[in-house]
């Protein structure tokens, strides 16, 4: 029997390994170096907080903000960019995802090529795409819609192809064993099981696109960001703040709708 009156001996605490120390030291050195490089200083927090420029954000000129040409027309353009690019991106993503999933890919070559291209596309940030396309096909919403389409294609393919990977392979096997060719087998055996996820991911991509399309205009790719960029050059931060409040109010409402739809789907 155990003797509870005596305190049992504590287990020995494991000693930290020398390698852990080394890693911690390297990370710490890296952090200090990075902090110097970005001119990090605790006192700057206070300086930012007490900067008199904050006064320029107030009061908000609501009568300037609540006009059709200043806010609502560009905002509509933003929404249209988000809808159109979600549509284009997700439509193309459907076949590409099936090509990119190890379960449904027609052959190894297609699998490898599509996977490599999509990984490279995703490594370029969305606004880089916007700037590139603005340069290539001209300033405006069209370039913005293109760039978001490309980016949503890349993200969608990543999300959806991995869902296809995890799909139940047995219906596909059944279709194949009854003599179906590749495409009909995928259509009948895999598509029905993953389609709800496809729609839900599309809605998620739409939410991402709405946020991205707000800032597209900062690089000349159309939408409400264009107005922000103009006012920024005039130092009218009060107008920018008013605009932002309206924009994020509307973005928030749309997102809530999308989130509730997604919850019903899956």
């Amino acid at each position: 029997m155990n003797d509870h009156t005596n305190t049992s001996e504590r287990p020995v605490k494991p000693k930290p390994r020398a390698r852990s120390f080394l890693i911690a030291l390297v990370l710490l050195a890296l952090t200090f170096w990075a902090a110097i490089k970005v001119s990090f200083d605790i006192s700057t927090f206070w300086e930012v907080w007490t900067n008199p420029i904050w006064g320029m954000f107030w009061p908000i000129p609501w009568d300037w903000v609540f006009t059709k040409e200043n806010t609502f027309d560009p905002l509509i353009e933003t929404l249209q960019i988000a809808v159109a690019s979600t549509l284009l991106g997700c439509l193309v993503a459907l076949p590409v995802s099936f090509a990119m999933s190890s379960l449904t890919t027609p052959n190894k070559v297609v699998y490898f090529i599509s996977k490599t291209i999509m990984n490279l596309v995703r490594a370029v940030p969305d606004l880089f795409w916007a700037k590139l396309l603005v340069t290539a096909i001209g300033i405006g919403a069209f370039a913005g819609a293109w760039s978001l389409s490309i980016f949503s294609l890349a993200v969608m393919v990543k999300l959806f192809s991995e869902t296809v990977d995890a799909a139940d392979p047995r219906p596909l096997e059944a279709a194949r064993s009854s003599g179906a060719r590749h495409l009909p087998a995928v259509k009948a055996g895999v598509l029905p099981t993953v389609f709800p996820s496809y729609v839900a991911y599309s809605l998620y991509i739409f939410e991402l696109n709405i946020r991205a399309s707000v800032v597209l205009g900062l690089v000349g790719a159309g939408g409400v960001g264009r107005v922000i960029e103009t006012q920024r050059q005039f130092f009218r931060f009060d107008r920018i703040l008013g605009l932002l409040i309206i924009i994020f109010g509307i973005v928030w409402v749309i997102e809530q709708i999308s989130v509730s739809l997604r919850k019903r789907l899956v």
Partner: peptide
């Protein structure tokens, strides 16, 4: 979470000035 980094930077740049510190914040 609702406000993207770029919008935060648009707001912060007049206060901090151009440069890495605005982006970091």
């Amino acid at each position: 979470r609702a406000v993207p980094e770029l919008i935060l930077a648009v707001i912060l740049i007049p206060v901090t000035g151009l440069g890495a510190w605005a982006g970091t914040l």
